[in-house]
Design a protein around this nucleic acid. Sequence first.
DNA 1: CGTGAGCCCTCACGTCGCGTCAGGGTCAAG
DNA 2: CTTGACCCTGACGCGACGTGAGGGCTCACG
Lengths: 318, 318
Amino acid sequence: MTVPLPRDRGTRREVDPPKVDLATATSISRRKEVPTTGRLGDMASGSLPSRPDAGDPDAGALTVGAAARAAGVTVRTLHHWDSVGLVRPSGRTTSGYRLYTPWDLARVHRVVLYRDLDVPLEEIGALLDAPEGADASLRRQRDLVRERLHRLERAAGALDRLVEARERGILLSAEEQVALFGESWQPSSAVGARERWGHTDQWAQYAERAASRTAAEWQAAAAESDAVVTALADAMGRGVRPGSDAADALAERHRASLGAYFDVTHAMHVCVGRMYAEDPGFAEHHDARRPGLTAWLRDVIDANARAHGVDPETATWE
Amino acid sequence: MTVPLPRDRGTRREVDPPKVDLATATSISRRKEVPTTGRLGDMASGSLPSRPDAGDPDAGALTVGAAARAAGVTVRTLHHWDSVGLVRPSGRTTSGYRLYTPWDLARVHRVVLYRDLDVPLEEIGALLDAPEGADASLRRQRDLVRERLHRLERAAGALDRLVEARERGILLSAEEQVALFGESWQPSSAVGARERWGHTDQWAQYAERAASRTAAEWQAAAAESDAVVTALADAMGRGVRPGSDAADALAERHRASLGAYFDVTHAMHVCVGRMYAEDPGFAEHHDARRPGLTAWLRDVIDANARAHGVDPETATWE
DNA sequence: CGTGAGCCCTCACGTCGCGTCAGGGTCAAG
DNA sequence: CTTGACCCTGACGCGACGTGAGGGCTCACG
């Protein structure tokens, strides 16, 4: 016989409600789909031992299956929540069946609510059992969800554009792009930029553009990048001064060439200039064309930014 | 020495890209927070064996740590993705260090995108590698994203409301409510309703209201529910006919009392009436007050709905 | 009254996407 | 030549269940 004692199921099989604190994160998890289709006699009233309905506290209680369907979760989930002490049905039949009262079910629903917001079970327990102090946790969760929402919105936008790009039929695989393209080129700057400032938006743009450009377009963009550097080196050699019209024009051309990878504001341009100047790798790349080019370029960019109303001293990426 | 062969690391340690299809779900998962703070010499150019920069195909490649920071994931994650074949760095140093090229990194970014949308890794692989049919899967993914966005939005809304409710400070735990309140009451109707029609929105409303009502309010609501049934039984006893003004008034009062748990339209009200009539549990509950009350109430509700322009024969929950 | 369908129970092991050591190599700087 | 910040490969752990296996309870039907 397997009938567990109706009293004293207190022998814990798994964890107790311990303390928790912080965490951070993202995402939307996949759970088993719960069929919502009705079942037969759910004992919603009168089938198990007790009288059909009355002052009996267990009247109207549901078995796991019924409760699970009612709450849109699986039976296994309720078992799990019972075993970890998150939602313990307040009754059992003589034969050991779990009985969920409306109150239990209300709790189940609250748990589902928070679980869908991806609060860890442990924290949900704390949340439901300790009315005070829950606010902070809730607010944290809300902020998390908000941030998450924004990221998703951008992702959705990116996807839309990707789909569109595909629908227009222009697309080569990354491999094809690579093949046509060699690899000592721009993305490493982008990588450096990301490393230093971590700009998700720009990276998303970059990834999109990388995915939706044809090889020819890539080559054109790369050629332009190269041409710009050549032109810059030339200008520097001709003694063009930062702040002059010629220099500003070149700065704008440089900015536009970066625009092939992501949209670059003047402030961002300034940051890029600084990064070039500070990173030995980039510096070497430019200075190979003409010693001192890196520093000169930085000054050209700064002056151009100023001409566009951006103070290079206070410029930030965002 | 641990140097793995640069060629033929093809000996799979884990899964291959198999076929997959659909799924459903919810939620927002928590992942380890990835510190975004800069590190020292990231070999963004020139540090490992190779020349600083040149026609070398591995120039500008990143080590795991650098790539991880660039993509906002952990090193372990990249290891994992490598081991399951999702993102394999296209190079290794002679000492076995993984080298991520910009192209690898672009792939990592795309993977992150999908992972954030909670696509299982397996599916992501299929998605990114699919030579054709990619359009279809892309579109599917986009739809998926849209759906999840909506869920998230609703989740965020629910959270806002919960936070607000808690901030207003009126709150008792479910247990306190039970203590003040007994358990043979309304939620079981709500349970029945959910069982039969599965109305998530209404349940969310119910959960929220349950979470944001004080004990006094609960008692008032319950008392009103009870009073309504009494009044109904009375009216039936006095021979009030469905469709009469008195009956309609009572129907509206009944509808309003349900409104304490969630908003009930006339169409929904009709459905509730039918459910009462069809479910032995509910029927018994009402008929205990006065035999035949259930059927009479159903008729009263139907008539009232008709009076409000809703055809009870075609009424559906939504 | 037996039988079978459809519930329910408790182990107990499997899965996914990593986190977290442990034990050991590598590399540039001091 | 050490130090410290990296890197490597196992290998085990975890959360939140999924998925049986092996068996008990109840009801409806024959």
